[in-house]
């Protein structure tokens, strides 16, 4: 069974997913960051594949992408680093990246490689649902990869239902009208959107992301969903870290407690 499915079978609340950019802060940090995220008690690891033009990302993740590329990160390099990671990591692992580098690698070759190294799912923010259905769904399925779609406060009820029909992993709820970036607090307006979607009775679990940064925002988001995704705030944690393992675990404890 796909690890994402097993996870949500066993756990329906306070699921914590952590995003980091591969190749940041140092090119070879990928595996140590993954191990620290696992040791710190998170439930899903999201590895960001860096891209030169990340249009859905705010300054923190943009910078991490640029530095990762300068460090020499590429999809080929990432797959080399991920060779054999399953001997150490049990958590579900999802790759998140923009479409262009993946298309250059070749979608089928990419999906095949994902399966070989042990990736469970994909989040490709600039792959719209229709294009996915027309061009890529069968390849994803062939290699056992769960696809995750985003929804935002602007997404219509009709489209949310369509998205729910066309995925079987989890739905990524973008918390507000925004690109990624840690903000302070969650507003009433956001909560009413969380509630609105919660009451739709979707078949897929929902994780809330964008602007989740600490214990308080994590707990609030978890009240209205199955859990949350932290990206920018985590990138800030690793950015200036002198001791990745220690700082990551301390940060995760602060969020989970």
């Amino acid at each position: 069974m796909n690890r994402i499915h097993s996870l949500f079978k066993n756990k329906q609340e306070r699921v914590l997913s952590i995003y980091f950019t591969a190749g940041f802060p140092k090119l070879e940090d990928t595996l140590s960051i993954m191990e620290a995220i696992q040791a710190g008690g998170a439930d899903i690891i999201e590895i960001g594949v860096p891209y030169s033009d990340p249009i859905a990302d705010g300054p923190t993740i943009q910078d991490s992408n640029q530095i990762a590329l300068e460090n020499g990160m590429s999809l080929k390099k990432l797959f080399q680093q991920l060779e054999g990671f399953r001997s150490k990591i049990e958590l579900p692992v999802v790759l998140m990246g923009y479409l262009n580098p993946i298309i250059q690698y070749g979608m089928e070759a990419f999906c095949k490689k994902c399966q070989e190294v042990g990736i469970d799912g994909l989040i490709l923010p600039d792959l719209p649902m229709q294009q996915y259905l027309d061009e890529f769904k069968s390849v994803f399925e062939q290699y056992g990869l769960v696809n995750t779609f985003l929804i935002s406060p602007q997404t219509s009820e009709k489209r949310i239902l369509e998205i729910d029909q066309n995925t079987d992993g989890f739905i990524y709820m973008v918390s507000s009208h925004s690109i990624t970036g840690a903000k302070s607090g969650i507003s009433e307006e956001q909560i009413s959107y969380f509630k609105r979607v919660q009451e739709m009775g979707l078949k897929n679990p929902r994780l809330i992301g964008f602007g989740i940064s600490d214990a308080e925002t994590f707990s609030t988001a978890s009240k209205y969903s199955h859990g949350a995704i932290i990206g920018s705030a985590f990138i800030k944690t690793v950015k200036d870290s002198k001791n990745l393992n220690q700082d990551i675990q301390a940060y995760l404890q602060s969020v989970l407690n």
Binding site: D53, L69, Y98, Y105, D126
Partner: peptide, 21 residues
């Protein structure tokens, strides 16, 4: 350029082998 995706459309664009613009 080679075929790729930039600013929301598939087109010809100048990019590295790894798909960075």
């Amino acid at each position: 350029g080679t075929p790729g995706i930039l600013h929301g459309s598939k087109t010809l664009l100048m990019q590295t082998e790894d798909g960075q613009v």
